[in-house]
């Protein structure tokens, strides 16, 4: 029998899990695919204020007006940032080894599989260690934790929490915030610049919650890796290979 305090705490944790799940889902959606009509509509309406409050205010050109040109502009920016040669490759394998589809990819796929997920690509050239997919996995674990809490399965919820934290530390903690910082610096559209900034802050915030201070120093150092030169000119971006 839970005490009232325990019930309140569990309720707060449930709310937090739900909120975190939604937040990570938003960040994942931003990184996994280009902005489409449905996503833009959410950004313009349901999320407008919350984004602004979180420091990722929706840029002027996304607030209103015809969408086709905007989608095109954002798709081009998305491709330049995350897809084409010279992109800030969103794959853990590339960040850690300089090559695509390495062990990091297997590890991510194993995590998904062990938790009952299958990685499915929409376009060619997508791998399980895509940062957006990894964030969506964190979102899914938050959601499962919430469901377990709701069902009163405290032990199960605890297991999921530990799993999520381990995934966050082991698979994202050493590179993803640093990657997001670099990507934000290279972004040439404020939407991606701000959302990537948000990714960095959210990840650091979450890591701070789960990582002991001594380990945080190591993670900070690891995340400071990256190219010493980043220029915003198109010639640099063309195939700079960040």
């Amino acid at each position: 029998m839970q005490t009232l305090i325990e019930q309140v705490a569990q309720g707060a944790r449930l709310d937090e899990c739900r909120a975190q799940s939604a937040l990570f889902r938003l960040l994942a959606r931003t990184l996994e695919y280009e902005v489409d009509e449905a996503f833009l509509s959410h950004l313009r309406n349901d999320l407008l204020e919350a984004l602004a409050e979180a420091g990722a205010e929706l840029p002027e050109d996304m607030l209103s007006g015809p969408s086709d040109a905007l989608f095109e502009k954002l798709a081009v920016e998305y491709t330049a940032l995350f897809v084409q040669p010279g992109a800030i490759s969103p794959y853990a394998s590339v960040f850690e080894t300089g090559s695509m589809f390495q062990e990091q990819c297997d590890r991510a796929a194993r995590w998904y599989q062990e938790n009952g997920f299958v990685f499915k690509h929409r376009y060619s050239g997508e791998f399980p260690d895509h940062v957006g997919t990894m964030l969506s996995f964190v979102a899914a674990l938050f959601e499962r934790e919430a469901q377990a809490l709701e069902a009163g399965e405290e032990g199960n919820a605890e297991e999921i929490r530990q799993s999520r934290e381990r995934f966050l530390i082991e698979e994202l903690g050493s590179w993803a915030p640093g990657w997001a910082k670099l990507a934000a610096q290279a972004a040439q559209h404020p939407f991606y610049e701000r959302m990537l900034g948000l990714v960095e802050r959210v990840l650091w915030d979450e890591l701070t919650q789960v990582v002991p201070p001594r380990r945080m120093r190591e993670l900070t150092e690891k995340n400071s890796r990256g190219p010493t030169v980043i220029k915003k000119d198109p010639g640099f971006r063309k195939a700079s290979g960040l």
């Binding site: 010279g86 690891k222 890796r225 980043i230 063309k238 195939a239 700079s240 290979g241 960040l242």
Partner: peptide, 15 residues
Amino acid sequence: SYGRLAQLKMKEKPA
């Protein structure tokens, strides 16, 4: 053109 090493616009510097 031809990618990061061919163009050498940046340099990997692992920690």
